[in-house]
Design a protein around this nucleic acid. Structure first.
Length: 215
DNA sequence: TAGTGACC
DNA sequence: AAGT
């Protein structure tokens, strides 16, 4: 009997999504306590808020940012801003270990030059969703996207380069990391309405960290 | 920032 | 419109 089976944390494993896109299962699991502590400190400086879309609707996902730049949306459009519109101050700094985790994940996925300067923090209450969209507000589209899932499971919608392409449904669990770039950089993606569930660390919510090289 | 396509 |  191998006692180690019960004491060794799970090794991360990798699942290809499409050319240029990879799911790194459990990649962040060993660091989630630390990530959550960092998020709590960031949120104390830059609280979650429900932003408006250019169409005038309020997003169901609550957002904040850390890093040199933060992604924002309002009636005027989508963009990156070096300041938090709520405070007029710079976004909280990106913790060094957040950045290292994102860079290590990018390296594993074949993007050794990733220099993230933006970390969008999305909080999904039960029922929150994100419609299919492309991440296209970044300056250098050769840099990948790194997405870290925390809390209750979600269904990631992974589409193609055309909005009309059928999206695959990919379950994303606490600690999973998705990296996409290259041929997949402009793939449409989203999140299905969050189903009610309980997570030991996060209760009824999901938090997603999206690392980007924005500037 | 709109123009689409899906659609009940 | 990262919306319904």
């Amino acid at each position: 009997m191998n006692v180690d089976l019960f004491n060794t944390p799970p090794e991360p494993w990798t699942e290809p999504l499409s050319p240029g896109a990879l799911v790194l299962r459990q990649y962040a699991t060993a660091h989630t306590d630390h990530l959550l502590a960092g998020i709590h400190a960031i949120v104390a400086q830059a609280p979650f808020r429900h932003m408006q879309t250019p169409g005038g609707y309020t997003m169901s996902v609550a957002m904040t940012n850390c890093g040199t730049a933060g992604w924002i949306t309002d009636r005027k459009g989508y963009r990156y801003s070096t300041t938090d519109p709520l405070s007029g101050q710079a976004w909280p700094a990106m913790p060094a270990d957040f950045r290292r985790l994102a860079q290590a994940a990018a390296l594993t996925a074949g993007f050794p030059a990733f220099q993230p300067d933006a970390c969008l923090i999305n909080r999904y209450p039960v029922g929150a969703k994100m419609a299919l969209h492309q991440d296209r507000d970044e300056r250098d589209l050769t840099a990948p996207i790194v997405s870290v899932s925390l809390g209750v499971p979600a269904t990631f919608l992974w589409g193609g380069l055309q909005r009309s392409d059928k999206a695959a449904k990919v379950p994303l669990l606490h600690g999973d990391v998705v990296v996409w770039g290259g041929a997949a950089r402009l793939a449409f993606h989203g999140i299905a309405p969050l189903k009610a569930a309980q997570h030991p660390l996060l209760g009824e919510e999901r938090i997603n960290l999206t690392f980007r090289q924005a500037l």
